[in-house]
Deep mutational scan, measured.
Amino acid sequence: TTVVVGNKKYTFDNPEAAEKFAKKVAKKLGATVHKTNGTFKVK
């Protein structure tokens, strides 16, 4: 599962961990999490 934050990509074996990370980053940046085909995008 990939999490994309700006131009950085983070890969997780565990989708739950990926989602948690994405939400944490989004909260910090005041952004939102978008899920597309198993990829979480923070923007």
Rank of each mutant, 00 (worst) to 15 (best):
T1I: 10
T1D: 05
T1E: 04
T1F: 13
T1M: 08
T1G: 10
T1V: 10
T2M: 13
T2E: 08
T2V: 13
T2D: 11
T2W: 12
T2N: 10
T2P: 06
T2F: 13
T2H: 13
T2R: 08
V3I: 03
V3Q: 01
V3A: 02
V3F: 01
V3T: 03
V3L: 02
V3N: 00
V3P: 00
V3Y: 01
V4M: 12
V4S: 07
V4Y: 14
V4P: 00
V4C: 08
V4D: 05
V4L: 14
V5I: 12
V5G: 00
V5Y: 04
V5E: 01
V5N: 02
V5C: 05
V5P: 00
V5W: 05
V5A: 03
V5Q: 02
G6P: 02
G6I: 07
G6C: 07
G6L: 09
G6N: 06
G6E: 04
G6H: 08
N7F: 10
N7A: 09
N7M: 09
N7I: 11
N7S: 12
N7W: 10
N7Y: 11
N7H: 11
N7K: 12
N7V: 10
N7E: 08
N7T: 11
K8Q: 09
K8V: 08
K8A: 10
K8Y: 11
K8E: 06
K8S: 08
K8M: 11
K8G: 05
K9Q: 11
K9A: 10
K9G: 06
K9T: 14
K9W: 11
K9V: 14
K9R: 12
K9L: 10
Y10T: 02
Y10G: 00
Y10H: 04
Y10V: 04
Y10A: 02
Y10L: 04
Y10I: 05
Y10N: 01
Y10E: 00
Y10P: 00
Y10W: 14
Y10C: 07
T11P: 06
T11Y: 14
T11M: 13
T11D: 08
T11V: 13
T11R: 13
T11C: 08
T11N: 11
T11F: 14
F12N: 00
F12V: 01
F12S: 00
F12L: 03
F12Q: 00
F12H: 02
F12R: 01
F12W: 04
F12A: 00
D13V: 11
D13L: 11
D13I: 10
D13K: 12
D13S: 14
D13E: 11
D13G: 11
D13H: 12
D13T: 13
D13Y: 11
D13F: 09
N14K: 09
N14Y: 07
N14H: 08
N14Q: 08
N14L: 08
N14F: 08
N14M: 07
N14V: 08
N14D: 13
N14I: 07
N14P: 03
P15G: 07
P15E: 14
P15A: 13
P15M: 12
P15S: 09
P15L: 10
P15K: 07
P15I: 10
P15Y: 14
P15C: 06
E16P: 05
E16W: 13
E16V: 12
E16H: 13
A17P: 04
A17S: 11
A17T: 13
A17F: 08
A17N: 08
A17H: 09
A17R: 10
A17D: 10
A18R: 00
A18L: 02
A18N: 00
A18D: 00
A18I: 00
A18E: 00
A18W: 02
E19Q: 06
E19M: 08
E19Y: 14
E19C: 04
E19I: 08
E19S: 06
E19G: 05
E19N: 05
E19W: 14
E19V: 06
E19T: 04
E19R: 07
K20E: 12
K20C: 07
K20F: 10
K20P: 02
K20G: 08
K20R: 12
K20V: 10
K20L: 11
F21M: 03
F21Q: 01
F21S: 00
F21V: 03
F21L: 03
F21H: 02
F21T: 01
F21N: 00
F21C: 03
F21D: 00
A22P: 00
A22W: 02
A22F: 02
A22L: 02
A22C: 04
A22H: 01
A22T: 02
A22M: 02
A22D: 00
K23W: 15
K23M: 14
K23E: 14
K23Q: 12
K23S: 09
K23P: 00
K23F: 15
K23Y: 15
K24A: 14
K24V: 09
K24H: 12
K24E: 13
K24D: 12
K24I: 11
K24M: 14
K24T: 10
K24R: 13
K24Q: 12
V25R: 03
V25M: 09
V25C: 04
V25N: 02
V25E: 05
V25I: 12
V25D: 00
V25L: 12
V25Q: 05
V25T: 06
V25F: 04
A26S: 05
A26N: 01
A26E: 01
A26W: 01
A26I: 02
A26Y: 02
A26P: 01
A26V: 02
A26F: 01
A26R: 01
A26L: 02
A26G: 04
K27E: 13
K27C: 05
K27H: 11
K27F: 09
K27Y: 09
K27V: 09
K27S: 09
K27T: 09
K28N: 07
K28G: 05
K28L: 10
K28V: 08
K28C: 05
K28D: 08
K28A: 12
K28W: 06
K28I: 09
K28Y: 07
K28Q: 10
K28F: 08
K28S: 08
L29E: 03
L29V: 06
L29F: 07
L29S: 05
L29R: 04
L29N: 04
L29Y: 09
L29G: 03
L29Q: 04
G30R: 06
G30Y: 04
G30V: 03
G30A: 04
G30N: 09
G30L: 04
G30H: 07
A31N: 03
A31Y: 08
A31R: 04
A31C: 05
A31K: 03
A31W: 15
A31H: 06
A31S: 06
A31P: 01
T32N: 06
T32S: 08
T32A: 08
T32Q: 09
T32V: 11
T32C: 07
T32H: 07
T32I: 09
T32W: 05
T32P: 04
V33I: 09
V33S: 02
V33F: 05
V33D: 01
V33G: 01
V33P: 02
V33E: 02
V33M: 05
V33A: 03
V33K: 01
V33Q: 01
V33R: 01
H34R: 06
H34C: 11
H34P: 01
H34S: 10
H34Q: 13
H34Y: 13
H34D: 09
H34G: 05
H34A: 07
K35W: 14
K35P: 04
K35E: 09
K35F: 15
K35A: 08
K35L: 14
K35T: 07
K35D: 06
K35Q: 10
K35V: 13
K35M: 13
K35S: 08
T36S: 11
T36L: 12
T36H: 13
T36E: 15
T36K: 07
T36M: 12
T36Q: 14
T36V: 15
T36N: 09
N37Q: 07
N37M: 06
N37A: 06
N37V: 04
N37E: 11
N37P: 07
N37S: 05
N37F: 04
N37H: 06
N37G: 11
G38T: 06
G38L: 04
G38R: 04
G38K: 05
G38H: 07
G38A: 04
G38C: 05
G38Q: 05
G38M: 04
T39A: 13
T39P: 03
T39Q: 15
T39W: 07
T39I: 15
T39G: 15
T39K: 06
T39S: 14
T39C: 07
F40I: 15
F40Y: 11
F40V: 06
F40N: 03
F40R: 02
F40Q: 03
F40L: 14
F40P: 03
F40S: 03
F40A: 03
K41H: 15
K41L: 15
K41I: 15
K41Y: 15
K41S: 13
K41D: 15
K41T: 15
K41V: 15
K41R: 12
K41Q: 15
K41G: 07
K41A: 14
V42K: 01
V42T: 02
V42I: 12
V42F: 04
V42L: 06
V42R: 01
K43F: 15
K43D: 15
K43M: 15
K43Q: 15
K43Y: 15
K43A: 14
K43E: 15
K43L: 15
